[in-house]
């Protein structure tokens, strides 16, 4: 068994990318053939297993073509979450929000900064710059190098990058709580109960900011009002907001 287990693991790892590529090709072919339901299923399965910017962009296209505006916008937002340099997803969001007359999420300055780079880059940048600054300040003493201006310069630069990257972390944290209404005509409730009075109806794809949670309901703030929605009615960029 001890000999077979590594073999199975290696085989699984070898087959995994092939299966992912198969699903990607299947989804693309279904989309080209106009079968958007199957395309969306393939891209969704792939995105659940291995989220990637290209897969999420294609998932957004398929969902949009089958009329699921909320899911499409969520997919494109997730694509930009992983890769903000992806022009196609950005253009699609502009296009769809114009067509569906939807608001663009109002982001704070720290959230805007956090959207400049892929979300995971910030953690590496902050950690790397901090330890670079620490090591550049202390290593010459420990290793008995001759003190040189370039060492001080690198330490200062790294410290500056570290300080500048900290607001982006707050931005990442608050953007992770940004959600999008998945279904059209979603009721915004006055209280966190199923039979609560409906304050207004939210459009599919409308952005909401989570304020707090209570049971199966979330208190969300939209551009129009503050109210409760069911957890299942909102999709978040990060699945664990």
């Amino acid at each position: 068994m001890n000999r077979i287990l590594p073999f199975i693991t290696c085989l699984w790892l070898a087959l995994l990318p092939a299966r992912a590529e198969d699903l990607f090709s299947l989804g693309t072919a279904a989309y080209r053939a106009g079968d958007y339901v199957q395309a969306a299923q393939a891209f969704q399965k792939l995105a659940d297993a291995h989220p990637s910017s290209g897969v999420l962009q294609n998932l957004g296209n398929a969902e949009w073509q089958r009329g699921e505006t909320g899911t499409a916008i969520l997919a494109w937002e997730r694509a930009l979450w992983l890769d903000p340099f992806q022009e196609a997803a950005h253009n699609n969001l502009l296009y769809v929000r114009k067509v569906a007359q939807l608001d663009t999420p109002q982001l704070g300055w720290h959230e805007v900064i956090s959207s400049w780079l892929p979300v995971n880059w910030w953690a590496w940048i902050t950690g790397g710059s901090f330890w670079t600054a620490v090591l550049m300040a202390s290593l010459p003493g420990i290793l008995r190098w001759r003190r040189a201006p370039w060492q001080q310069g690198i330490a200062a630069l790294a410290l500056m990058v570290f300080l500048l990257s900290i607001p982006a972390h707050f931005g990442v944290d608050s953007r992770a709580r940004l959600g999008f209404v998945l279904q059209k005509e979603t009721p915004l409730r006055l209280s966190p109960t199923f039979d609560a009075q409906s304050l207004t109806r939210l459009t599919a794809g409308e952005p909401v900011h989570t304020v707090r949670a209570r049971g199966d309901y979330l208190l969300v703030r939209t551009s129009r009002a503050l109210g409760w929605v069911a957890r299942t009615e909102v999709g978040f960029i990060s699945p664990r907001p």
């Binding site: 693309t28 897969v55 992983l82 890769d83 992806q86 022009e87 253009n91 953690a123 992770a176 990060s238």
Partner: peptide, 20 residues
């Protein structure tokens, strides 16, 4: 509407940010 992406792009194991 832009066309489909030709490649899978930047991969991630999860959408949860690293720091979380």
């Amino acid at each position: 509407l832009n066309d489909l992406a030709a490649t899978r792009g930047i991969d991630a194991t999860t959408l949860v940010p690293l720091q979380q």
